[in-house]
Amino acid sequence: MNLLADLRAKQALYSQYGQSCSLARAIFADGTLANALYRMQAALVRWRLAPLALLPHWLNKCLNGCVLGVHAQFGPGLVLIHPVGVVINSAVRGGRNVWIESGVVIGDNRGRTPMLGDDIFIGSGAKIIGGVTLGTGARVGANAVVLEDVAPGVTVVGIPARPVDARRTAAT
Rank of each mutant, 00 (worst) to 15 (best):
I88F: 05
I106Q: 11
E101I: 02
P76R: 14
P83Q: 05
V86P: 10
G103Y: 01
L78H: 01
P83S: 03
V86R: 00
G107H: 02
V79M: 15
V92F: 12
L80Y: 07
V79W: 06
V104W: 05
G107N: 01
G85M: 04
V79Y: 08
E101K: 04
S90D: 14
V92L: 12
V87P: 03
V98R: 00
A91C: 14
H82F: 11
V87M: 09
V98S: 00
I100K: 07
V92P: 13
G107T: 13
R96K: 14
V104G: 02
G95M: 06
V84K: 13
P76S: 12
G103R: 06
S102Q: 15
L78F: 00
V84D: 00
A91M: 04
I81H: 15
L78W: 00
G77I: 02
V105K: 04
H82A: 14
L78T: 01
W99S: 09
G94S: 04
W99V: 13
A91Q: 14
L80W: 06
N89G: 15
H82G: 07
L78V: 01
S102I: 04
P83H: 07
I106C: 12
V98D: 01
A91Y: 13
R96Q: 11
N89W: 00
R93E: 01
V84Y: 09
G107S: 06
V87T: 14
P83K: 07
S90L: 02
I106A: 10
G95N: 07
P83E: 08
I88D: 07
L80V: 02
V98H: 01
V98L: 00
I81Y: 10
P83V: 03
I88K: 04
S102V: 03
N89K: 05
I100F: 12
I81W: 14
L78D: 12
A91L: 15
G77D: 09
S102H: 15
V79P: 02
I100A: 08
A91K: 14
N89C: 13
V79G: 09
L78N: 03
R96V: 08
G77R: 09
V105C: 11
S102R: 12
P83F: 09
I100D: 05
V87D: 05
I88G: 03
V79L: 14
I81D: 15
G77W: 03
G94R: 03
I81R: 13
N97R: 15
V79Q: 11
I81F: 13
W99T: 11
P76L: 09
V86I: 15
V92Y: 09
V79R: 10
